[in-house]
Design a protein around this nucleic acid. Structure first.
Lengths: 199, 199
DNA sequence: AGATATCTGTAGTGTTCGCTACAGATGTGG
DNA sequence: CCACATCTGTAGCGAACACTACAGATATCT
């Protein structure tokens, strides 16, 4: 028995296009027509490969998370907690205003509040954001064990703070804030980090 | 000639209900059916009073801005820039987790990215957010003139930083962060403010 | 080559969306 | 009390939505 006709499009390349549409219009604002056009496929191919609009989002988020993990590895690889924070903030400022992508971040612009029936979407995005916060947290726990952070510095608070600031930068980016504006925010935030890290 | 049948519902009370729906589901996620049910009116009454779904949002935003201005007056009334920042941050932490409202803030949860045809909505929300930032800015300019801020402290940067942090707190609130979590973020941010304010 | 399994493109499906026509109700001004 | 202007509720409009039935195309496996 045969194995069937092979897929005629590259799933990862298609997901990159879908990511862009979700990012630019949000989950609910993105229509299947826009998605299929950007992905250069027809609806049946989309549904055969990803099951549903929400399934497509999850697949796109998985791919997004992959890329983000690779990026976070570089950030977390810094030798001090201070440099981790600095890289994290500055790289975010740049990434969120990179003209190659829509402004902000897919995990925020994708949708904070959704309509009835899509309640799962904001939840899914939040889970991915929490993942980043957890990665920072873990790194700061290590930093504290290495005496790289002060006695009373709380790794969870530091991680949450950085996560909040970068989320805020997403909102600013969607309002048209440019790279310099975000870098200024990052620089101020870094001072808070330093104060808090002394602990 | 007569003046016609008078409106049978209170427009402000109806707008409060509409605000809640837009806040909870976002602009695109909110349906006319949900809005009319919450407002306890029928579609023709909605359209006679507000023109369109987007017109209703703008009316709700106007009402939101009214309330917010009253609130900001209290915040900006503090005698020092430091206390302005503290009130601003802490009050935000409380307001965004007040069980009387959906989590976060209408100006953020309302929608950062929208579908084709609603591009105006994120723009409108951004304009209202900028208003708050401008109010802070103005207050910090005054603080600097009063030598309440350091020589090299930049009022614009401070205002933008606070605006970014509170926007970030909205994102955290929509992920389920509670009052204490947001207050921690506010406390850390306040340290950055202090450092920056020394200038 | 033939049988089989899966993909692809066309052309829709039913549902829900924002919005409105219409008729009756209810007020004001004369 | 009557003419008029505006609101209200019912009922439903066309359009756009997410999604799919179907037939033909294209690969694999024997």
């Amino acid at each position: 028995m045969g194995m069937g006709r092979p897929r005629a499009f590259d799933a990862d390349a298609a997901l990159d296009q879908a990511m862009d549409v979700f990012w630019r219009h949000g989950y609910e604002g993105a229509t299947i027509a826009q998605l299929t056009e950007a992905m250069n496929i027809n609806p049946p191919s989309l549904y055969a490969a990803f099951g549903s609009k929400e399934g497509l989002l999850k697949a796109a988020l998985d791919r997004y998370t992959e890329k983000r993990d690779a990026w976070m590895e570089k950030v977390l690889g810094a030798s001090t907690a201070r440099e981790v924070a600095e890289r994290f903030l500055m790289e975010h400022a740049d990434a969120q205003t990179d003209p190659a992508n829509p402004p902000g971040c897919l995990l925020v612009q994708g949708g904070l509040a959704c309509g009835t029936g899509s309640e799962n979407v904001p939840f899914e995005l939040a889970a991915r954001r929490t993942r980043t916060e957890d990665q920072l947290h873990e790194r700061f726990v290590r930093a504290k064990a290495e005496r790289d952070l002060g006695e009373s510095a709380d790794p969870a608070t530091l991680a949450r703070y950085l996560s909040a600031v970068t989320s805020g930068m997403c909102v600013m980016a969607s309002s048209g804030a440019d790279r310099n504006a975000l870098r200024e925010i990052a620089a101020v935030s870094l001072k808070a980090f330093d104060e808090q890290a002394k602990g």
